[in-house]
């Protein structure tokens, strides 16, 4: 018998021969599915960027650069810029709210930690549209916030359908995605480091800036990405809370596909959106490697 009993170098020739069918059986179905329904669609989108739209929707396979020149139109650049702005503001607010919350959850007794964390995640597991709808009910003209303010002799205000409402909706929707990685980073922190800093005479603020914050920075970066990525490409929140105008790049993409039926330009916009996110992820990977 040539069959070896231990894995490793001696077993390599056998395993290479007998593993090939296993490899195909395991990897084949899933990869085939992802090639057909993920990679081919993405390649189609990419190829559409150089084609022209048909007169009644669809595509004319005639190579053109007009989608890219149109992308540089100040109108569209402006929408991309305002998406960047709104997503950035939402991310910063989520960080400012999320950091102290995550910090305090990490200090709680073990039993309460779980409760507090589940309470952060629970709203995230409820229907996204329902959560947005809740804000419409709260903030609309005759809504609870306005009637409370009127009771205090203030208002009524028009809260809905502006950029502030969009940011509120974004923060509300993605705050749990900020708190969880922050909590994970803060939880891992050795409390002795902070004690050492305090013993060496550092004030709490100094300890935070020089010890806690740098050590939890990976969590901060992850949390910011988790909030920024779904915010930047969002089209539901700007539509329902922003009054239906095309304020963010997601709305533009949606409109090109479902209203203007200009699929080539819609694809170009979508890939521009994707390009921004890829650049951010590469920056994050680069900073993680340096750290």
């Amino acid at each position: 018998m040539t069959r070896s009993t231990v894995s490793g170098a001696t077993a390599a020739p056998r395993s290479r021969r007998s593993r090939a069918p296993g490899r195909l059986a395991f990897l084949g179905p899933g990869l085939a599915y992802l090639i057909v329904l993920l990679l081919v669609p993405l390649a189609l989108l990419l190829s559409y960027t150089v084609f022209r739209r048909g007169r009644f929707g669809g595509v004319v396979y005639e190579v053109t650069g007009e989608n890219f020149t149109r992308l540089l139109d100040p109108l569209y650049l402006g929408v991309i810029a305002s998406s960047l702005k709104l997503a950035t503001i939402a991310t910063v607010i989520a960080l400012l709210v999320g950091y102290p919350t995550a910090y305090l959850i990490a200090q709680l007794p073990r039993k309460w930690k779980t409760v507090a964390l589940v309470a952060i995640v629970l709203p995230f597991w409820t229907n996204f549209l329902v959560r947005i709808y809740a804000w419409i009910v709260l903030l609309s003209g005759p809504g609870l916030v306005n009637s409370t303010l009127e009771g205090l002799g203030l208002g009524p205000f028009e809260f809905l359908y502006n950029q502030g409402t969009i940011v509120t909706g974004l923060v509300y929707s993605y705050l749990p995605l900020m708190v969880l990685p922050l909590y994970a980073a803060i939880e891992r922190l050795d409390p002795q480091l902070r004690e050492a800093s305090a013993n060496l005479g550092a004030r709490p603020a100094r300890t935070f800036v020089s010890v806690t914050l740098p050590l939890t920075l990976p969590g901060v970066v992850t949390g910011c990405l988790f909030v920024f990525v779904p915010s930047f490409g969002n089209f539901i929140i700007p539509e329902l809370l922003g009054g239906g105008r095309s304020i963010m790049v997601g709305n533009l993409v949606r409109d090109q596909f479902l209203k203007a039926r200009d699929w080539p330009f819609g694809s170009t916009l979508a890939l521009a959106l994707l390009a921004v996110l890829v650049v951010l992820l590469l920056l994050q990977a680069w900073s993680a490697r340096r750290a």
Binding site: V40, L44, L45, Y48, V229, V253, F257, L273
Partner: peptide
């Protein structure tokens, strides 16, 4: 990790 909107329109086009 792909934005849902990009996957959505990719599949629509496909």
């Amino acid at each position: 990790v792909l934005p849902d909107l990009v996957l959505a329109i990719g599949l629509l086009v496909f």
